[in-house]
């Protein structure tokens, strides 16, 4: 992939370990940077937990009227789906990341380009560090609250735990790539709010945040999974956590996520290259 070959001339073992330690160092800094925003973390925890309550009551009301299961979920699974979703929201960081667009607008992006590392790789590394922080401080608390108040489904298979972590990692990468592309539109459009709006509206619905995509007709479900990165953002890790499907399908979901992660990162590098070619850096 262009991303890697641009950074290391030949992918030898030594280069690979250097690359790993480099991305590790940037990720660690992402972790530390994010940990300085304690108030923001607390505020979003409160909001996400509040919405968790609302959404659980709505879901339970729906299942209550429809009988024991709905679209393949039991009541406890739906409650689990809600709380895992509330926790993951801050981990994949669906909304509220416009660092890159801001830096493009101000022209500060020039300092990103001065570094001997591909910008997509360096932003991705920092985002993984941020996600690791969020996994501890923004994912766990809502799950604990949800589990204490409601009867939520916790994984029965041991294998679900590693599968879930891999799925979250891929979800973060897919979401990062989408956010990167939305932000990178600022290279072309001085006002990229339209693109951001589109992302805000579609990501939650297609990602399965408001309701599981399985509530939709089968053809729409298939279209979403295979034709859009949407379900790879949230639906996949949530379904894996509540063990909606058998192990084979759970692994399959990870395969779909992997496909989207690789494809979108590749698109990011292409877009970045295009942007650099025609780029005009703002400001003196």
């Amino acid at each position: 992939m262009g991303l890697v070959t641009a950074t290391v001339d030949r992918l030898t073992f030594r280069n690979f370990t250097e690359l790993a330690s480099l991305t590790g160092a940037i990720a660690a800094s992402g972790f530390r940077r994010f940990s300085t925003y304690r108030q923001a973390t607390v505020a979003s925890l409160v909001t996400n937990t509040m919405f968790g309550f609302l959404r659980t009551y709505v879901m339970l009301a729906i299942v209550g009227t429809a009988g024991a299961t709905l679209a393949g979920y039991t009541g406890a699974q739906l409650a689990g789906y809600v709380w895992v979703g509330q926790g993951l929201l801050g981990v994949v960081l669906l909304w509220g990341w416009n660092d890159l667009a801001e830096r493009i607008r101000s022209g500060d992006v020039v300092t990103d380009l001065m570094r001997p590392i591909h910008p997509v790789l360096s932003y991705l590394s920092a985002d993984l560090g941020r996600a690791a922080y969020a996994m501890m401080f923004r994912f766990l608390p809502p799950i604990v609250v949800g589990a204490l108040v409601f009867q939520i489904y916790l994984p029965k298979d041991l294998v679900t735990y590693p599968l879930f972590l891999i799925s979250v990692l891929l979800a973060v990468i897919v979401c990062f790539a989408c956010r990167y592309l939305v932000n990178a539109s600022a290279f072309w459009l001085l006002d990229h709010r339209g693109v951001t709006m589109f992302w805000l509206f579609t990501s939650g619905i297609m990602g399965g945040l408001y309701f599981p995509v399985h509530f939709l007709p089968d053809w729409a479900v298939a279209l979403l999974w295979f034709g859009t990165p949407g379900p790879s953002l949230l639906q996949a890790p949530m379904d894996i956590f509540v063990e909606r499907d058998g192990v084979a399908i759970r692994v399959g979901l990870i395969g779909i996520q992997l496909f989207w992660a690789v494809l979108l990162l590749w698109v990011c590098t292409v877009v970045q290259r295009r942007a650099e070619r025609k780029m005009v850096i703002q400001g003196g």
């Binding site: 480099l22 160092a25 800094s29 940077r33 001997p116 590392i117």
Partner: peptide
């Protein structure tokens, strides 16, 4: 958001 010291450490890794 990082102290100078951390910025310098990070640059050491990047370069």
């Amino acid at each position: 958001d990082l102290p100078l010291r951390d910025s310098f450490d990070l640059l050491k890794a990047i370069y």
